[in-house]
Design a protein around this nucleic acid. Structure first.
Length: 579
RNA sequence: GCCGGAGUGGCUCAGCUUGGCUAGAGCGUUCGACUCAUAAUCGAAAGGUCGCGGGCUCGAAUCCCGCCUCCGGCACCA
C-alpha cells in the first residue's frame, strides 16, 4: 500500500474489469476502472517495473445472443464488432493495455474448460436438476432474458425475467411469462445443471478477507456480511448456444455462465502474452507478481467471492489477487448514469469534442479511492480544466518556455548568482516532488497525487512571479529561469501518467526528441530510496545550461462557457426525447 | 427492514484511523500589484455554532450514545 511495497516488488499484473461486449464504453467505465488502472500502470512502468496491463471483452452470455439475433448477426460477428470498437475507444483515451483480448479466445476457452475439470476433480462441482422455462414452440430452454413478463414489483409489462428495467429490481418470479423469441407462454421443464460449491469456501473466504490488509475495509465488511448470511452454491451452466461448452460427454448443449469464465480470462490472457516471451514460466510469473484487479463497485460480489473461491478450488495454482481496487460509480450531473434513459456520455462522443487529456485530468482529479460515487459536472469540468490544467499548469510551462525563447533565444542560461534561500527551496521541491507524487500513486490515490502536482506548479508560479526575471535581467534572472525550466521538466515527468499525450508535446517543446524522451522516462528511477542527502546539489538538475529548447506554443485551448451550456442542453434534450 | 457511507465557509472537498498547532485547500467574491505568459499570474481580505442533542475528557470536527436528513447495496445484475 505504500512506496516501500512498490519498491520491494518488481513485477505487476494489472487487470481492468472486462467490458461486456454489447455496448459502448462511456465515461463511467473510464472513471471507475480504466483510468485509475492506467495511471497506476504507467507509473509503475516509469519506475522500471515489469508490468502487464490486461483486459478483454466479455463475449458470452444470453444478452449478447439476443441482441445479435435482433440485429441478424451471428454472435461471433456481434462481439467482434464490439471488441474492435472497445479497442479503438480505449486507444482514443490512451489506456495503455499490454493486451486487450477476448473471453471467446481459443486460449481462454481451453483454460476455462481445463479449470472446470480441475474443480470437478477436486470435488467442487456437482449436478442438479433445475426447473426452467422452456418454449415448446422453439424447442429451447429460456434462461434469464429470454423470458419476458410483468414485473411483480412495479407491474410494468414486457420486462426481463431477471431484471426489470423500469424499477431496477430483480423479480423472484415474473408474472405472465412469455417466450422472448416467439411470444408464446413457455412451459416449465427440468434441466440438468452444474453447480459450484461456493458454500464450502465460506470459512476460507472469510479468513482471506480478514487477513488481507490490502483490501478496502468497508468492502470487506460488507462481503463478510454476505458470508454470514450464508453463501449459496452457484449454478454455473446455461442451456444456450453461445458460451464455452461444458467439456463433458453428457453435457451437450450446455455452456458456462459468463461469470464462471470471464474472470479466468485475466489469467488466460496473461498466460497468452507470457507464452510469447522467451524463457518465462507463466504460472511462476503470475505467482511472483503483485496482482491487481481494478473494478467498479457493481461487481464486488464476483471479485470478492466467486473469483477467489474458484482459485482456491484449484489449490491456489494461480494466486489470489493482492489488491482489488474498487471504486464507486460516476454520476452525471448528480443523476445516475443510465443507458436506457439515455442519461450518459459515450466516450467516443466526448473525445470527438474535447482533448482526451481534459477528460483524464478531470476524472483523475475527482477520483477518490473509495466506493463512494463521484459526480461528473459540466461546470466543474469547465472550471478544473480552465483554472487548474490550463491557467495553473499550462500557463506555468508556457510562460517559462516562452520567456526562455524570447530572452535567451531558447538556450538554457547559465545560473550566474549564488542560490539564495528561495532558490534552495526550489531545488528541494524539484528533487522531492516525484517522491511525493509517488507516495500517493502507489496507494492509488490519484486525486491526491494530482493535487500535489498542482501545488508544485502553483509554487513555481509564485516563485517566478516573485523573482520577476524581467525586472532582474542583470541579477537573479538566469538562476530563476534555469530553476524554473528544471521545474517544468519535473512537472512533465510526474504528469505523464495523468496526461501522457500532452506530456509528449511538452518534451518536444523542451527540446527532447522522442528517443531522448524514452530514455529519460525509462532510465530514471524516480524513486529516490530514502536518499535525500543531496537535496541542495545541482546534480539533481537534469536540464543543463546550453541545452536548446524546441518550438514553443500554448499546450491547451481553453473551454468556452457557451460550449458547456450546449453540452448541458444536449444532455437534457436527449433525455426528454427518450421519456 | 437489514447493512454500509455521508452531513465542515456561496460551491467542490481535505482533515476524523493514533482527540490538542489561531479548522485547511481549490473555485467563486472584494481590493491591490505585475506584464514573461492563453484577460494568464502574484499579494491581501471577507466568509464556517465542523447536521442536531447529550456524554467521556484539562481539551473533540476528530472518541461514545441518541436523533434528523441525504445517498448507496441487499446476491448471480458487467
Amino acid at each position: 500500500m505504500n512506496l516501500n511495497f512498490i519498491n520491494n516488488n518488481n513485477s505487476f499484473i494489472i487487470t481492468g474489469a472486462l467490458p461486456y461486449a454489447n455496448g459502448e464504453i462511456h465515461l463511467g467505465h473510464i472513471s471507475s476502472t480504466y483510468l485509475p488502472a492506467d495511471i497506476f500502470a504507467r507509473f509503475l512502468r516509469k519506475l522500471g517495473k515489469k508490468v502487464y496491463f490486461i483486459c478483454a471483452s466479455d463475449d458470452y452470455g444470453t444478452p449478447i445472443l439476443i441482441k445479435a439475433e435482433k440485429e441478424n448477426k451471428t454472435p461471433e460477428q456481434f462481439v467482434q464488432y464490439w471488441n474492435s470498437r472497445d479497442r479503438e475507444d480505449f486507444a482514443s483515451i490512451s489506456i495503455s493495455f499490454d493486451k486487450f483480448y477476448k473471453t471467446s479466445s481459443k486460449e481462454n476457452v481451453e483454460f476455462v474448460q481445463d479449470f472446470f475439470l480441475k474443480l470437478k476433480d477436486n470435488g467442487y462441482i456437482y449436478e442438479k436438476d433445475v426447473i426452467q422455462f422452456f418454449c415448446d414452440y422453439d424447442n429451447k430452454f429460456l434462461p434469464d432474458r429470454y423470458v419476458l413478463g410483468t414485473c411483480p414489483y412495479c407491474n410494468s409489462d414486457n420486462q426481463y425475467s431477471d431484471l426489470c428495467e423500469k424499477c431496477g429490481r430483480v423479480p423472484q418470479e415474473i408474472l405472465d411469462p412469455k417466450c422472448g423469441i416467439c411470444g408464446k407462454p413457455p412451459t416449465k421443464k427440468s434441466s440438468k445443471h452444474y453447480f459450484f460449491k461456493l458454500s464450502s469456501f465460506s470459512e476460507k473466504l472469510r479468513t482471506w478477507l480478514s487477513e488481507n490488509e490490502n483490501l478496502q475495509t468497508d468492502i470487506k465488511r460488507y462481503v463478510i456480511n454476505w458470508i454470514d448470511e450464508g453463501l449459496d452454491d452457484w449454478d454455473i451452466t446455461r442451456d444456450i448456444s453461445w458460451g464455452i461448452p461444458v467439456p463433458l460427454d453428457n453435457a451437450h448443449g450446455k455452456v458456462f455462465y459468463g461469470w464462471f469464465d470471464n474472470h479466468l480470462c485475466y489469467i488466460s490472457t496473461t498466460m497468452t502474452i507470457l507464452a510469447d516471451e522467451n524463457n518465462v514460466d507463466g504460472k511462476k510469473f503470475w505467482n511472483d507478481s503483485q496482482i491487481y484487479h481494478f473494478i467498479g463497485k457493481d461487481i464486488v460480489y464476483h471479485h470478492f467471492l466467486f473469483l477467489p473461491a474458484m482459485r482456491m478450488g484449484v489449490d491456489n495454482e494461480y494466486k489470489l489477487p493482492d489488491f482489488i481496487p474498487c471504486r464507486g460509480h460516476l454520476m452525471l450531473q448528480n443523476q445516475k448514469i443510465s443507458k436506457s434513459r439515455n442519461w450518459y456520455i459515450g466516450l467516443r462522443d466526448f473525445i470527438s469534442q474535447y482533448d482526451q487529456d481534459y477528460l483524464r485530468f478531470y476524472l483523475a482529479s475527482i477520483s477518490s479511492y473509495s466506493q463512494d460515487d463521484i459526480n461528473f459536472d459540466w461546470d466543474l469540468f469547465y472550471e478544473k480544466i480552465n483554472n487548474e490544467l490550463i491557467d495553473n499548469v499550462g500557463n506555468f510551462i508556457n510562460r517559462v518556455l516562452s520567456y526562455t525563447k524570447k530572452q535567451y533565444n531558447g538556450i538554457v542560461p547559465q545560473p550566474i548568482t549564488e542560490f539564495d534561500s528561495d532558490d534552495k527551496i526550489c531545488l528541494e521541491k524539484i528533487s522531492t516532488i516525484e517522491n511525493e507524487v509517488a507516495k500517493f500513486i502507489s496507494s492509488i490515490e490519484v486525486d491526491k497525487a494530482l493535487k500535489e502536482i498542482l501545488k508544485f506548479s502553483n509554487y513555481f508560479n509564485q516563485y517566478f512571479q516573485t523573482k520577476s526575471p524581467w525586472k532582474n535581467k542583470e541579477g537573479t534572472a538566469n538562476t530563476t529561469v534555469y530553476l524554473s525550466l528544471n521545474a517544468v521538466r519535473e512537472l512533465t515527468l510526474v504528469l505523464e501518467p495523468f496526461i501522457p499525450n500532452s506530456c509528449s508535446k511538452i518534451w518536444l517543446q523542451l527540446g527532447y526528441s522522442e528517443t531522448e524522451t524514452e530514455k529519460i522516462k525509462t532510465n530514471e528511477n524516480v524513486i529516490d530510496k530514502e536518499d535525500n542527502n543531496n537535496k541542495d546539489s545541482m546534480e539533481k538538475l537534469k536540464i543543463r545550461p546550453g541545452h536548446i529548447l524546441g518550438e514553443v506554443s500554448p499546450l491547451f485551448k481553453k473551454i468556452e462557457k457557451s460550449d458547456i451550456e450546449k453540452q448541458k442542453l444536449k444532455l437534457q434534450n436527449n433525455l426528454s426525447v427518450k421519456t
